[in-house]
Each structure stands twice: as structure tokens, then as C-alpha cells.
Design a protein around this nucleic acid. Structure first.
Length: 593
RNA sequence: GGGGUGGUAGUUAAGUUGGUUAUAACGUCGGCCUGUCACGCCGAAGGCCGCGGGUUCGAGUCCCGUCCACCCCGCCA
């Protein structure tokens, strides 16, 4: 028997073989996908990264020893096959790319056995995530996950090529860095040498990339891990990957143009989808007014209407109260929605309640008349507003949210819009809808403390024309910040940064951060800004989200090789885990309990 | 921190009003089979009904608590 691996090298990927290889002797190595033992002849589907190929193991080509090996094969055993590519003896299998050929084995070797699988290695597996995550190395054998990670690899390569061609330099920044109380909760790492002190894992390389601009690199990028100790979602992991970039001497337009270029290349080369550039832009205010959210899904219309002014004198207090009290009356018109059942509407009501809305008012329009419990309150002004402003037609339903808190009403209506669109099949899943959202507010009010908080981060540059309002009317200040949104998900965001110490000081003041506190937390940045910092700005893409949308997967877990659960743990390694007291002592740490 | 869905064989599920022996399919194991391709046929094994407590003559089923997975709100850019 020939020595596989040492002498007989793997010659082809199983999935690469075609009729054009007919007559060639090949060596395949991979996993047994399925075995079909017919007694005299035995077929196996041999699988490797490239795909699947049928191998025929028969008594005419193999000796008794080899046949014994063949008969012992089970699913997921690792095998090596040497044989000839021949045209299929039976009918071609149209389900396989290699379906016109098969490999007639002349030698077979068992490279390794496998325990029975906890679940089947198939494209569509109905096994729950709990089991799949525990055996992630098996889940990753499945073609959909292999494809997703391949796409991710290609996307990263295109990003690197793009930024390199645009004269960017890739620079690594520290993973062990300084905790800053701004933004998300930090993951902390105790310092053994400096007992009682801690590093933080970076939430993003934000400050370092700015320092690289001060250092004169002018164009920096990096594909880097970031860490945030917050509660998780389908699109949020405790550690995730950003494509991070920063540029000197630029306007927002310059940065957006570079990013447009990267997205254009990725979508063209990976999906063969043409993105028209420049990608359209709308302001934050416009996004909020038209879509109710700052991450609008622009693949469909059904924009929000605002009937606040038209319901001021309404006899319906649910409307007139918010309308006259500084609140908002808004909603959507669903074309054909008059066919919604009571149950449908009840479900939508429950949906908006999760966003803090008190309820959902609805009006159906049929045969030129309104119906529904609120219809008795439809006066001339409201009728005019719904028919003209909201363009409601026969067969439609208007879903209306009114609230004293305008942002509650807007958010509820905005989320309702995408919820209804998805459930009504108004969204084409193969379509990609990009938009930039620009001119974000500088501050938002923290509901708990009543203090101002930075919406993006405190180094975001206000629009030059708004700087004077920093002290007088900070909530009105808009910034040179921008998010890139794809299919209703934020896939990136950035800003022009403050490069002027005086402006930075004013922002800290508005945030209630004193001189001493600022120096303590960001001293090195303030220092740097005082040594000839160039005007600069940048952006970071959420790489996992971008790849998950490109691959049509709902969860970023599907595009991360070894993701964590919603409890921020790893079911495969059982991390996080307890450590020895000895380790803690060495770090100067004591358990509380 | 809050709300929701789920947890029964290796996997996916069924399990009636609480009723005595907890089903099925796939997988696994054994046997047969030379053109299958989710091969087929015959047979077998396989259970802490997530865990703990309670109600009851009796709990997979009802109640309380708890753990885990997923989805959402808050949080997070």
C-alpha cells in the first residue's frame, strides 16, 4: 500500500473534479460525508473544503485488506483515496457539481476514525444553537458556515487591498489599554506587576488612531478586535471586529468617498452587486422625521407621517394631548392593510408597547369611509391630513402612535415601519439599501442623571457653524458625524474629530467633565492635541455586521468562527471559568463572596 | 435589570383532562444487498422528561424556584 500524505499528496479538492479530469489519477483526502454500502460495491461521498465527490470502492480494484478498510468507513471518518476519475457509471447526479464524474478507487486509507456525530453535518441542520455551539468545530464543517467564513476572509482582503491602494498604512494598536468611563462598560484585565490596577480591553482604537494622526501617518487603517461588556443581541458580541480608519486633512465627504469605494469593491467582487456611488446621504433630522430611527431601512417607502398639528383640536384626547403638550402624533399607512384582522392589529399594538408606546390607534379606509374605534373622532382636519399628507387610499390602514414623549412615539412608529414591512414581505431580501446618515446631534440627555452625554463620543467635532451654541444651546449643536446604514442596520460610523484644545475644553465643560477629570482620563490626548494635531477624522465599520448582511445571515454569530452566547460565554471552551485562588493572590485580587 | 419563546433518546420533535409499558423520524449498532447518491430491506440497543422543591394515591403534564439557549426592551455606537 502506498504511503498517503508522505508519498501520495492530496492532488485535488473533491469538489473541483469535472468531466475534464476524466482519465486522470487523483489523490483525495477528506471526510466521509455519507456511505452507501450496496454489499458488493460501496459508494462514499468524500467531502473537503472544496465540496463533495462520489468515490466508488469495488472488489475489482481493491484487495481484501482495502475492502475491509472500505467497509469499516463511517460518517466523518477521515480518509485518503487514490483512484481514477471516470464518467459516472450510473446516472449523473445533478445535485452535485461533480455529479458527472466519480473516482474509482485503487487504494484507500483510513487516516482517522470519528465518534458518532452529535448532529448531522448537513447544509440545513435543525439542531439548536446550544448543541452546535458546544461542538462548534463540527458546526464549522457545514458548508454554509464555511462559505460565510470564506466570504469574511475575502471581504477582509478586499478592505486591505482597497485601503493600501488609497495610501493607508495598517498599524496595530494595544489590546491592553486604559479604562475610560465614557461609552460602554470595559472588560478589565488585572495587572500583576501593578497590583490593584487594571488594563481595559479597547472598546475601539479611537484614541490611538487619533494619536497616529498627530504622529503624522495621515492615513491609518486596521482590522481590529474591539470589546464591550454590555448585554448581547443577534448583532452584538462582546468581542467583535472593526475595519477602523482615520485620515488627516479631510472633510466628511473625503472619508465617505473612501468608504463608498471600499463597499463598492466588496459588493462587486464578492456578490457581483453594483453599488451606485456616492451612496445617498440624509441628515439625522431627516432620517428621524421620515423613518423615526437613525438607521433607516431605505429598501421600501411607507415613511412616517406627522399629524401632530392636525390633531391639536381633536376630540380624541389620545391625540390632542400629545399634540398640544409638546408630544408627537405620528404613524404609517400600510397599503392594503385594511385587511388586517383584529388579531394582527393587537399583535402590532403589543409590538409598539415594547418601545414604550401606550398603544396603537388605527383607522381603516374602505369605500371612502374610515372605520375602527377611533373613526368617530375623525374630524375634517384629521381626514384631510390622512388623505392628503399621509396619502391614505381605499384598502389601507393607518397605524398611529401618539405620545407626550416625541421620541417614544417616533421610535415606536419607526420600528413598527420595518416590522410591518418585513412581515408583509415588502422587503426584497436580495436587495441592498445603503444610506449615509449625517449631522448627528452632539449631545443627548441622559434620562437617569439629566446630564448631557455625548451621542457619538466627546471628541466629535461640532459643525463649525454650531460651535457658538456649545455653551448656549448645546442640545441644538450638530456634529460632523456620519453613520453608514445598510438594510436598516448601522454598519459603520465616524466623525471629524476635534483638533482644537479650546473646542475640546468647551465640549468637556458641556458634558460636566472638569479640567482635572479631563486631564486624568484623556490627558495624553489633550497633550497630543497641543502639539500640532492636524485636522482629522475617520470611521469604523462593524465588520461582522457587514459580512452577516452580505451573506444573508441574521446573526453575526454565523460569521464569527467561535462566537459567544447571549450570556457572553463560550459553550465550547466553557469560558469564562473560575481560576485558582493562587492566580488571584498573585494579581492582588480577593473574591467578595 | 425587565418581557417573551423553548428545554422529553445522540439529534429533531409528539406526548390528550394528571393515570400506570413515554412515542416517532433521523442517527448509532448487527444482518442482507454490485450502480447507489438522504440507497433500500430486516432486526436491536438507546431516557436524570434541564435541575431543585411542592401539590397529589399518582406529575413529562399542575404550582413555585432555579439553570441554560435564543429573541426583544433597557444598556451598547
Amino acid at each position: 500500500m502506498a504511503q498517503f500524505i508522505e508519498e501520495l499528496k492530496k492532488s485535488h479538492g473533491a469538489g473541483e473534479l469535472r468531466l475534464s479530469h476524466k482519465g486522470e489519477q487523483v489523490v483525495l483526502m477528506g471526510w466521509v460525508d455519507t456511505v452507501r454500502d450496496l454489499g458488493g460495491t460501496l459508494f462514499i461521498d468524500l467531502r473537503d473544503r472544496s465540496g463533495i465527490c462520489q468515490v466508488v470502492l469495488g472488489s475489482e480494484q481493491l484487495n481484501d485488506l482495502q475492502l475491509e478498510v472500505a467497509r469499516s468507513l463511517r460518517q466523518e471518518y477521515v480518509v485518503a483515496i487514490m483512484g481514477d476519475v471516470i464518467a459516472r457509471g450510473g446516472k449523473p447526479n445533478t445535485n452535485l457539481k461533480t455529479g458527472e464524474i466519480e473516482v474509482l478507487a485503487k487504494d484507500v486509507a483510513l487516516l482517522n476514525r470519528s465518534q458518532p456525530m452529535p448532529f448531522q453535518i448537513a447544509d440545513n441542520v435543525d439542531t439548536g444553537e446550544e448543541v452546535r455551539l458546544k461542538y462548534r468545530f463540527l458546526d464549522l464543517r457545514r458548508a454554509p458556515l464555511q462559505k460565510a467564513l470564506l466570504m469574511r476572509s475575502k471581504a477582509a482582503l478586499i478592505a486591505r487591498e482597497h485601503f493600501a491602494s488609497e495610501n493607508f498604512i495598517e498599524v496595530e494598536t494595544p489590546i491592553l489599554t486604559k479604562s475610560t468611563p465614557e461609552g460602554a462598560r470595559d472588560y478589565l484585565v488585572p495587572s500583576r506587576i501593578n497590583k490593584g490596577k487594571f488594563f481595559a480591553l479597547p472598546q475601539s482604537p479611537q484614541l490611538f488612531k487619533q494619536l497616529l494622526q498627530v504622529a503624522g501617518f495621515e492615513r491609518y487603517f486596521q482590522i481590529c478586535k474591539c470589546f464591550r461588556d454590555e448585554d448581547l443581541r443577534a448583532d452584538r458580541q462582546p468581542e467583535f471586529t472593526q475595519i477602523d480608519l482615520e485620515m488627516s486633512f479631510v472633510t466628511p465627504d473625503d472619508i465617505m468617498a473612501v468608504c463608498d469605494g471600499m463597499l463598492q469593491k466588496m459588493f462587486k467582487h464578492i456578490l457581483n452587486v453594483d453599488i451606485e456611488t456616492p451612496i445617498p446621504r440624509i441628515t439625522y433630522d431627516e432620517a428621524m422625521a421620515r423613518y423615526g430611527v437613525d438607521n433607516p431601512d431605505v429598501r421600501f417607502g411607507m415613511e412616517l407621517f406627522d399629524i401632530t398639528e392636525d390633531t391639536r383640536d381633536s376630540a380624541f384626547k389620545v391625540f390632542s394631548g400629545p399634540a398640544t403638550g409638546g408630544g408627537l402624533v405620528t404613524g404609517i399607512v400600510v397599503a392594503g392593510g385594511a385587511s388586517f384582522s383584529r388579531k394582527d392589529v393587537d399583535a402590532l399594538t403589543e409590538f409598539v408597547k415594547t418601545y414604550g408606546a401606550k398603544g396603537l390607534a388605527w383607522l381603516k379606509r374602505n369605500d371612502g369611509a374610515f372605520s375602527g374605534p377611533v373613526s368617530k373622532f375623525v374630524d375634517v382636519a384629521l381626514e384631510k391630513a390622512l388623505l392628503e399628507k399621509a396619502a391614505m387610499k381605499d384598502g389601507d390602514i393607518a397605524l398611529i402612535v401618539a405620545d407626550m414623549d416625541a421620541s417614544v412615539a417616533r421610535t415606536a412608529a419607526g420600528r413598527l415601519r420595518t416590522h410591518v414591512a418585513k412581515s408583509q414581505g415588502m422587503v426584497n431580501p436580495g436587495q441592498f439599501g445603503f444610506t449615509w446618515v449625517t449631522d448627528f446631534p452632539m449631545f443627548e440627555k441622559d434620562e437617569e442623571t439629566g446630564k448631557l452625554a455625548a451621542m457619538h463620543h466627546p471628541f466629535t467635532s461640532p459643525r463649525p457653524e454650531d460651535v457658538s451654541m456649545l455653551s448656549t444651546d448645546p442640545l441644538k449643536v450638530k456634529t460632523r458625524a456620519y453613520d453608514i446604514v445598510l438594510n436598516g442596520q448601522e454598519i459603520g460610523g465616524g466623525s471629524i474629530r476635534i483638533h482644537n484644545q479650546d473646542v475640546q475644553a468647551e465640549v468637556f465643560k458641556a458634558l460636566g467633565i472638569g479640567d482635572e477629570e479631563a486631564r486624568n482620563k484623556f490627558g495624553f490626548l489633550l497633550d497630543a492635541l497641543s502639539f500640532g494635531a492636524p485636522p482629522h477624522g475617520g470611521l469604523a465599520f462593524g465588520f461582522d455586521r457587514l459580512v452577516s448582511i452580505m451573506s444573508g445571515l441574521d446573526s453575526i454569530r454565523d460569521v464569527i468562527a467561535f462566537p459567544k452566547t447571549t450570556r457572553a460565554g463560550c459553550l465550547m471552551t466553557d469560558a469564562p471559568s473560575e481560576v485558582d485562588d493562587k492566580q488571584l493572590t498573585e494579581l492582588g485580587i480577593k473574591r467578595l463572596d
